[in-house]
Design a protein around this nucleic acid. Structure first.
Length: 722
DNA sequence: AAATCCCGCCAGGCC
DNA sequence: GGCCTGGCGGGATTT
């Protein structure tokens, strides 16, 4: 966590300048070359900072090699060191610790960590002080070299919403050099970005930067594909299996004859079902496709929470890989890579799901949810979105999925969900909060401010058009509005990130809360609200850079409603515990929608890398046991209003919310409606609706009274079955 | 100990 | 044959 703060700062400050350059250049961030040069130079020249790097390089990393993709070179270069460097080397040789420190430092710089205040300070020290100091300070730990952080840095170089006129070309080599990493790492990032169409390959070693303009469309398409492929059902099915396993394990008896391990599940699917899959080539396993599939899982999930193992299982099955454990592990590793990038994009955040079995790592979608409403939707998914995916695997996948499902006719998603009880926790829970509250924030805030500035700038430049769309009133969020604007958004979108932000700046939070409260008051009729929302949505999505709404969970829960204005927002977030009912299908998503997910804000807010740790979002989450299906049924009526159209999730949410309200309190209801509306807004429109959702459970996050009180804000998840 | 995931080997493809 | 890509998984770090 601490680390996070640092990283964020770093990213924000230092970079901006650079970023600007890059952006301006249009073609590339090449301007960075400056940096690049530096890095290159560094080895050669004993620039203050450099010395350290050198030491590092030598020993550890090739990455640094600014020079060219060739790794080896760097090391060799190391030679040009300064006496200090040599000294360090010697020292490091003697002490592993020292060695590590140096390494870290080196890595750091190359990467540009200089951005960070942290880094800067270090550098300064270095310059002025002896090498020794340097060691201590810097420690480029693994985190600092993480893909998430690297991705943030990468993203920081380019405008989220580049002007249509400007075409930015990304040179992999240059980026690698400027960021001080191997090209291989850049591939990891670019592949994921490419899967979302943020970039596209234009030539060898060259990628074109598109930014987030088409993200909503891409997501919409992915969602559609996911629905078509019945990922939701597959997830439910797998969950069911797990539950069965657990039960049986607990009972010590095996009823199905399924093996104990998860693998069995995998086996079931993978093997028989999709024979054709064999054909899948390397591409099927590509990060790009995995990324798209992973995103689809979130988009079709009602709860918007996907556990890594579940995702891995589904992906393995599709690819027909053998279910063996090693495959599973490899898949999970890849998913971590993807998740890191997606986290940097602020599309997902790490959480933990606690089940009976224990805690499982999972990710929660915090990106836009309503993109469905946008106009462009119509674009055909297949073509625009993942042609490859579609062509190569889509048909196959669908087929497989159907078969699988068919086999398990017995499978009842609802049941499964019911059975499953999970808690979603942010890792850092208590500790994390502390941090936030403490001084750490200030920094973050500063970074955020910077980010916003940037955003604003960006927006003004390129995005204006997009932002314009944003709704006037309700949508104040749009790009135009920097921080403050956020509050407006709250209604529509809630993002975990928002929480973070809030935490950072109490004042802002208050504002939010106030607004929220308003919203809650509004409690407007769903219908009207919904309408508005719809209109708004597009705008929001499109433009806004940062609309972080207070944590989704909070709003969703309606906690603010209860007690008053969002007052608690700040506190709530911290304390709030979310409970996620078993099935993933919870409603949360609705709330979460975030207007604009801009990478920038995110970046700063959270260093992609470890936001996970931060929990603000999650905070301590308590698990609420899902209610019985019967309860769920109640919901049905409310739902009728909307009908489940393409966005079953939303419906569910509503339902869930309604339900919760009933159970919990009248107030809650009102709020819930509001939130639900927001989330839903876009969806009804969609064409795609998958009617399938039937199975899904719905969970509502409800703030418990206790929570509101402040101490432990807990949100209870109520789940209902449709 | 489990969760993460960095790092870079090495193979497929293309030029 | 060399370079670009990127799958893959050992093993180091963190949690």
């Amino acid at each position: 966590m601490e680390v996070n703060c640092l990283t964020l700062k770093d990213l924000i400050n230092p970079r901006q300048p650079r970023l600007d350059f890059a952006i301006e250049d249009g073609e590339n961030a090449q301007k960075e070359n400056i940096f690049v040069d530096r890095s290159r130079m560094a080895p050669k020249t004993p620039i203050k900072n450099e010395p350290i790097d050198l030491s590092k390089q030598k020993i550890f990393t090739p990455e640094r090699n600014p020079i060219t993709p060739v790794k080896l070179v760097d090391r060799q270069q190391a030679e040009p060191w300064t006496p200090t460097a040599n000294l360090k080397m010697l020292i490091s040789a003697a002490s592993p610790d020292i060695r590590d420190r140096e390494k870290k430092k080196g890595l750091f710089r190359p990467i540009e960590n200089k951005d960070d205040a942290f880094t800067d300070s270090l550098q300064l020290d270095v310059v002025g002080d002896s090498a020794v100091d340097e060691f201590e300070k810097q420690r480029p730990s693994r985190k600092q070299k993480s893909l998430g952080l690297l991705c943030q840095k990468f993203l920081a170089r380019y405008p989220s919403y580049p002007l249509s006129t400007e075409k930015t070309t990304i040179s992999l080599d240059e980026v690698a050099v400027s960021l001080g990493v191997e090209r291989r790492r850049i591939y990891d990032i670019v592949n994921v970005l490419e899967s979302l169409h943020l970039v596209s390959r234009v030539a060898k070693n060259q990628y074109g930067w598109h930014g987030r303009h088409s993200l909503p469309k891409t997501l919409r398409n992915l969602q559609r594909l996911g629905e078509e492929q019945k990922y939701e059902e597959q997830m439910a099915h797998l969950q069911q299996k797990e539950l069965d396993l657990m039960d049986y394990k607990c009972g010590e008896r095996k009823r199905d004859g399924c093996p104990d391990s998860q693998d069995p599940h995998l086996l079931d699917f993978s093997e028989a079902d999709c024979p054709s899959s064999s054909a899948n080539s390397r591409k099927d396993k590509s990060l790009r496709i995995m990324s798209q599939k992973f995103v689809m899982l979130f988009l079709v999930s009602k709860t918007k929470i996907v556990t890594l193992d579940l995702a891995a299982k589904i992906l393995i099955e599709e690819s027909q890989d053998t279910p063996d454990h090693s495959k599973f592990k490899t898949k999970v590793r890849r998913l971590y890579d993807i998740a890191n990038v997606l986290t940097s994009l602020a599309l997902i955040k790490k959480v933990h799901v606690t089940e009976e079995r224990g805690r499982k790592p999972a990710f929660k979608w915090i990106g836009p949810v309503d993109f469905s409403s946008s106009d462009e939707e119509l674009v055909d998914v297949s073509s625009s979105v993942l042609p490859e995916l579609k062509r190569e695997t889509y048909g196959h996948i669908q087929f497989c999925a159907k078969q699988k499902l068919a086999r398990h006719s017995s499978f009842n998603s609802v049941q499964a969900s019911e059975r499953i009880q999970r808690k979603v926790n942010s890792e850092p829970n208590s500790p994390y909060r502390k941090k936030q509250e403490s001084g750490g924030y200030s920094l973050e805030i500063g970074s955020l401010a910077a980010v916003y500035r940037r955003k604003i700038e960006d927006n003004s430049q390129g995005e204006a058009s997009a932002s314009q769309r944003a709704m006037p009133q309700s949508c104040s969020l749009d790009a135009a509005a920097p921080f403050p604007s956020l509050s407006a958004d709250s209604e529509y979108c809630v993002s975990p990130l928002a929480n973070q932000v809030l935490s950072v700046a109490p004042t802002d939070l208050q504002a939010f809360s106030a607004q929220n409260g308003l919203n809650g008051q509004g409690g407007v009729s769903l219908g009207s609200a919904a309408l508005d929302a719809e209109s708004l949505k597009p705008a929001l999505l499109a433009g806004q850079p940062l609309v972080y709404v207070p944590s989704a969970s909070l709003f969703m829960l309606c906690g603010s409603l209860q007690e008053g204005p969002a007052p608690g927002a700040g506190t709530e977030r911290d304390s709030r515990g979310l409970d996620v009912a078993a099935a993933e299908r919870s409603s949360t998503p609705s709330v979460q929608k975030r207007l604009g997910d801009e990478r920038r804000p995110q970046e700063e807010e959270e260093p992609a890398t470890k936001r996970q740790s931060r929990d603000y979002e999650d905070g301590p989450l308590s698990l609420v046991i899902p209610k019985k299906p019967s309860d769920a049924t109640d919901i049905a009526s409310p739902k009728s209003v909307e009908t489940r159209g393409s966005a079953p999730q939303e419906d569910l949410h509503r339902n869930g919310q309604l339900f919760a309200a009933k159970e919990v309190s009248g107030k809650v209801l009102a709020n819930c409606f509001v939130s639900s509306r927001n989330s839903e807004i876009g969806k009804p429109l969609k064409e795609n609706e998958s009617t399938k959702e039937p199975s899904l459970l719905q969970y509502l996050y409800v703030q418990s009274p206790a929570v509101t009180s402040s101490s432990h804000p807990q949100e209870h998840l109520v789940h209902t079955a449709r």
